[in-house]
Computed example of a mutant assay.
Amino acid sequence: MLSPQYVRIPMNKRILLTAVIALGVLGAIFGFKYLQIRQAKAAMAARKPAPAAVTTTPAVQETWRSTLHAVGSLESFRGVTLRAEIEGRIVHVGFESGARVQAGDVLVELDSQAETAQLRSNEATARLAALNLVRARDLRENSTNTQADLDTAEATAAQTAAATEATKATLAKKRIVAPFAGRLGLRQVNPGQFLNKADLIVTLEASDPIYADFSLPQQDVTQLRPGLPVKVSIDAFADREFDGVVEAIDPRINETTRNLRVRARLPNPDEALRPGMFVRVDVVLPDERPVVVLPATAIVYSPYGDSVYVVAKNEQGVLAAQQRFVQVGPKRGDQISLLGGVKPGEEIVTAGQGKLRPGTPVTVNNSVVPTNNPAPKPAES
């Protein structure tokens, strides 16, 4: 009789036993991994994101006047480019670059010796012609001469008078004067220089008052009228705002742009504003409307619409950010108005929007807040 260790197991039973053991080991491995995955999912589900730190401000309702916004440029009240009307050599220059002049001030004198001599000759000839005319009329009254003699004397007197006036006109063109009061530009001539006809001498600008020319879309034509107040701002004077009024409205709309040209008049006693400057213009309309006011930093601009983030408690009682699309209105300094989308009193995110998504938990930290000034001024150094 054989001992137990020598009991032979049939081949098919050994294969089946090996398969059962392998399946048991694999089942144990897969079960362990399944439990690990379930525990990881549960841990992730239980984990909550850290709240995003933001600054907020309550939406405030104010009453703002409606305005029309435009960009334009400044134009002189009067402006000319002085050029020579006649040829001649310069004998005197009576101004310096940038000088202020009055109407009638002599700017340039040309050599006029020949014209002065010609004027004396013409005046002498005119006096003789006048005397001859008097004699001819006396003779004609006595029928001593013919009517043809009188007609000739009258024609000669008229011709010599005309020659005298022509010489005087030429002499006047030899003295170039300021046509109105204003400030001169850069001098382009010097004594001794020979001027040809139409040569540039200097520019003259009168800039008090000064014009601001700008364009508005044709849909605004019904709201415009002369006398409306305007407020003009310019980058060169960030701390100032210039007041003026609408003076004129072009009766014709541009056929290419469908815009309407408008001109405003601004006082400029200190000549701070210069012709050619780029300006921003706000036409202040008489009607007022209620708006919700926020710092301009609260607006999130995007191609599909402008929005803000409103902070409020969600269903779990946690502060969270919710995106709200808004209708943006006029802007004043650091402030911007909303015509719809936000109610007064709602808490609006003013900084930190870059890390927000709809429903993101937030924590409010208002230790440092964006500026919210309707008329900001640059900091003094």
Score class of each variant (00 low, 15 high):
residue 17 L to V: 15
residue 19 A to M: 13
residue 20 V to K: 08
residue 27 G to T: 13
residue 33 K to H: 14
residue 41 K to T: 10
residue 50 A to K: 11
residue 52 A to I: 13
residue 57 T to Q: 12
residue 66 S to R: 15
residue 74 L to R: 06
residue 76 S to F: 00
residue 79 G to W: 00
residue 80 V to R: 07
residue 90 I to R: 02
residue 93 V to Q: 00
residue 106 V to D: 06
residue 109 E to G: 00
residue 118 Q to S: 15
residue 119 L to H: 04
residue 127 R to S: 11
residue 138 D to S: 10
residue 139 L to K: 02
residue 139 L to C: 02
residue 143 S to V: 02
residue 146 T to H: 12
residue 153 A to C: 12
residue 155 A to Q: 12
residue 179 P to S: 05
residue 180 F to C: 04
residue 180 F to M: 06
residue 188 Q to K: 15
residue 198 A to V: 02
residue 199 D to V: 06
residue 203 T to L: 02
residue 204 L to D: 02
residue 213 D to F: 06
residue 213 D to M: 10
residue 223 Q to E: 14
residue 225 R to P: 04
residue 233 S to W: 06
residue 236 A to P: 03
residue 248 A to M: 09
residue 252 R to I: 14
residue 262 V to N: 03
residue 267 P to R: 09
residue 270 D to A: 15
residue 278 F to P: 05
residue 279 V to Q: 00
residue 281 V to Q: 03
residue 286 P to E: 09
residue 288 E to Y: 12
residue 289 R to L: 14
residue 289 R to H: 12
residue 290 P to M: 09
residue 292 V to Q: 00
residue 296 A to Y: 01
residue 304 Y to V: 11
residue 313 K to S: 15
residue 314 N to L: 04
residue 322 Q to C: 03
residue 329 G to K: 03
residue 339 L to T: 05
residue 345 G to S: 14
residue 346 E to S: 12
residue 349 V to C: 05
residue 353 Q to H: 10
residue 358 P to G: 04
residue 358 P to V: 07
residue 372 N to V: 01
residue 372 N to C: 10
residue 375 A to C: 07
residue 381 S to F: 15
residue 381 S to W: 12
